[in-house]
Design a protein around this nucleic acid. Structure first.
Lengths: 117, 117
DNA sequence: GACGAATATTCCCGCGCAGGTATATAAATG
DNA sequence: CATTTATATACCTGCGCGGGAATATTCGTC
């Protein structure tokens, strides 16, 4: 993985928020959509971008599509994700995103057929 | 400084190399140009971009223009620069850039009126 | 002030990306 | 199979960026 590709993935606000959220664990699209408060197509397209650039993996779970960070991230990615987590701690938007995610993750664990959105 | 702006500055190969080089200390444009082996206009425009985004500062020194990283970088920038330095250590291009810079910096210290290019 | 060296700017082009609208696919449910 | 939910894709638009060619500016030297 090229270092510059990591920065290409992070240089958009929405993508940056998504990656930061996935830092806290996997999420489905509709949860991301609700947390970010952005239109579905926007979230979906950024997820596609991230997937095509090796930044995220996805896995179908019934009607949901679960996105997660790579299981075995290369060293540069791990370093940058740690840095991102560190920096995000002082940012209001990132903090709010994380709080919302914490409220929604239990629903994912239950893994019912339909989303709670 | 917005976190995403840092990534915007680093998401281009040439800019990434420039910022990494400045991590090792200030450099003038013609030295950057020689190290990167890129046309002058390309280097100059990326430097302009970096300056307008608060990533670098510049100072005239005779005929030269010396570029450097900000004297008091905010926390997020410091963290990301450290991360970049760490990641760059394992990359052939960054290593070669740094080696070339080490050979040219003494000329900057002498600070004659004209460049040694 | 003429010249050369160092650097910046202007003008142009092409491409890729961000965003939106509408439509398509896939899965679960009845 | 029809419907609803979840997600993806196709198509269009506008804009900003990367890159090159040519020109301008700034500084030092003679």
């Amino acid at each position: 993985m090229e270092l510059v590709q990591i920065y290409e993935c992070l240089c958009d606000r929405t993508r940056l928020r998504i990656v930061h959220l996935l830092t806290g664990g996997p999420l489905c699209v509709c949860h991301l959509q609700e947390i970010l408060d952005e239109p579905q197509v926007k979230v979906s397209k950024h997820l596609r971008y991230l997937k095509e650039h090796g930044m995220v993996e996805r896995e179908r779970q019934g009607a949901w599509m679960i996105y997660r960070l790579p299981g075995k991230p290369p060293r540069e990615l791990r370093a940058n994700l740690a840095c991102l987590q560190d920096c995000a701690r002082e940012d209001a938007t990132f903090a709010r995103d994380a709080k919302r995610a914490a409220r929604l993750r239990p629903a994912l664990a239950k893994s019912g057929p339909f989303c709670a959105c």
